[in-house]
């Protein structure tokens, strides 16, 4: 099949970007979206042009590396699917696909379709864990956890951190990502001791990173490759409200966001 790919090309953050259209005449419907870009890149390389930079790694939908907008939808039209598992048979012969990077102030552009998502790592740094050091643990079965709770925690923990929720949100909010971690740990008994503090700190970090606020629109849930439930948003709000109320100090300090790549910045 024939396709036109209109792709955002931008050399680096400082450079000016633009859309460039490429025609592909021999697209196999069995290819994944990323393999389609591989073919394009092979052609470009052979012509001595710079290939399109796009992030990818496992190519089986679990690492969370890949992702871009395909004609206005994060990860493309197929629900619960990352671009690496999206096969081209879901498009029609002659289609024009517009490929754009995730657009968010908190995801500064690196190159072409690649953005910098270290802001998500910093949200996890701000309490997205159980503070237990290696060795200091009781027997695995010492703490029974009902199947229902374990399953719900697993539903929330399935997040792959791809950033599609932020990209799709009209507000540019990272609430689904943050809420998923708060819900995962907040549901489990292991997560209780730090539940209040965790929610307060992670939300503060999310705000400090410059993500937008959640107004419960619901686009995030629709594009989430792991179909994280909007329930996690409510849990985050509740834990945050309770946590803020109980908080005993006036201020919550956030980690300062870093966007550079210099030796002292990484």
């Amino acid at each position: 099949m024939k396709l036109t790919l209109t792709i955002w090309r931008q050399r680096d953050r400082a450079a000016k970007g633009r859309f460039v259209s490429y025609r592909l005449d021999d697209v196999n419907p069995e290819m994944s979206m990323l393999e389609c870009l591989d073919v394009l890149n092979e052609n470009l390389s052979e012509r001595g042009e710079e290939p399109v930079a796009f992030e990818h790694d496992c190519r089986e939908g679990i690492c969370g590396s890949c992702g871009f907008m395909i004609s206005g939808i994060a990860h493309g039209p197929l629900p619960a699917t990352t671009v690496c598992q999206l096969t081209m048979r879901h498009f029609k012969d002659g289609d024009e696909l517009v490929l754009e990077p995730w657009r968010s102030k908190s995801f500064p552009l690196v190159k072409d379709l690649i953005v910098d998502r270290r802001s998500l790592d910093r949200i996890v740094q701000a309490g997205g864990y159980v503070s237990v050091s290696t060795g200091n643990t009781p027997d695995g079965n010492a703490l029974p956890i009902g199947k229902d709770i374990a399953d719900r925690a697993m539903d929330a923990a399935a997040c792959i951190g791809c950033g599609a929720c932020v990209a799709a949100c009209p507000n540019g909010s990272a609430a689904l990502f943050t809420g998923a971690k708060i819900a995962h740990l907040g549901l489990l008994p292991q997560g209780q001791p730090e539940r209040d503090e965790r929610a307060v700190r992670m939300v503060a970090q999310m705000n400090a990173e410059g993500f937008g606020g959640c107004t419960n629109i619901g686009e995030c849930v629709a594009v989430c490759p792991k179909q994280i439930s909007p329930e996690v948003l409510a849990r985050m709000n509740l834990d945050y409200l309770v946590g803020s109320w109980k908080h005993r100090h006036g201020t919550v300090t956030a980690i300062s966001p870093i966007i550079g790549w210099g030796p002292d910045e990484t």
């Binding site: 159980v130 237990v132 027997d139 695995g140 079965n141 703490l143 374990a150 399953d151 995962h184 292991q190």
Partner: peptide, 18 residues
Amino acid sequence: DQCVAQGVPFAREYGGSL
């Protein structure tokens, strides 16, 4: 034991054991 303490959501029986 370590992973359970970290909050890894391993599959559970109805009674709550691993």
